[in-house]
């Protein structure tokens, strides 16, 4: 018990002392996660809205496919992207492996299904009469869609926040595609795994505390948004 308390106390001291290496790792994590979330949001919201508004054969199948992709393990995505961007891969000439860009690609693939399914759910929950109201006010198809998306903004924002929470805490993609290079691609989760291997519990605990605080903050925002959408 004292080992845990001592590690926890030392970790707090490390955080409060604003350790440069620690905060650089946090910064890398936040940067790659933020970029992948933005990219996935652009693609996911557009895709989710398109699927939701369109009526086509096999729509339920497509939604089921995206729901299935929600449980895709990060290591599988890591291996898949690795095969594509490694020297022998299709995108090998771009020299992306073990870079932040590689992590961003992997993480974007990971969370697109999250944003797509949440967006479909958020848009579907908007009363069908909103669409008719927009149409009777003279809105064309694009204007009607935009009005519906605006009505579903809380649900869509919740989707983006949930996606960010997913990427900031993933380890498989960052490890396989980023390579955990110190000062370059070391993220909070990969650093924690390494420090644990080395027996450096204090550093790993400090990163764990920051990660938990970040997740806590994200969940508070998520709850606030959900609460607003239910009002």
């Amino acid at each position: 018990m004292s080992f845990f308390v001592d590690s926890f106390y030392s970790a707090l001291v490390l955080i409060l002392s604003c350790d440069k290496e620690l905060f650089f790792i946090v910064l890398v994590s936040l940067k790659v996660s933020a970029i992948s979330t933005i990219l996935a949001s652009l693609a996911g919201v557009l895709l989710g809205c398109s699927i939701s508004f369109a009526s086509f054969k096999g729509k339920k199948m497509v939604i089921t496919l995206f729901n299935t992709l929600l449980s895709l393990p990060t290591v599988v995505i890591g291996l898949f992207v690795y095969a594509m961007i490694s020297r022998r891969g299709f995108f090998g000439p771009f020299d992306l492996l073990y870079t932040k860009k590689a992590i961003i690609i992997g993480q974007t693939i990971l969370i697109i299904p999250v944003i797509v399914t949440f967006t479909i759910s958020a848009v579907s929950q908007i009363d069908k009469r909103y669409r008719k109201t927009a149409m009777t006010l003279g809105a064309n198809l694009f204007q009607t869609s935009w009005l519906i998306v605006k009505e579903a903004k809380f649900g869509i924002t919740a989707a983006v926040i949930a996606a960010f929470g997913r990427v900031i805490s993933e380890v498989g993609i960052s490890m396989i595609l980023g390579g955990n290079a110190k000062g370059f691609t070391r993220t909070m989760t990969t650093a924690m795994a390494l420090e644990y291997d080395k027996g450096e519990f204090v550093f790993a605990t400090a990163l764990g505390i920051i990660l938990l605080l970040l997740s806590f903050g994200i969940n508070i925002i998520f709850q606030i948004i959900q609460g607003k959408s239910e009002k």
Partner: peptide
Amino acid sequence: NQHPIFFS
């Protein structure tokens, strides 16, 4: 509509 819809 009977129950008019307003945007938020």
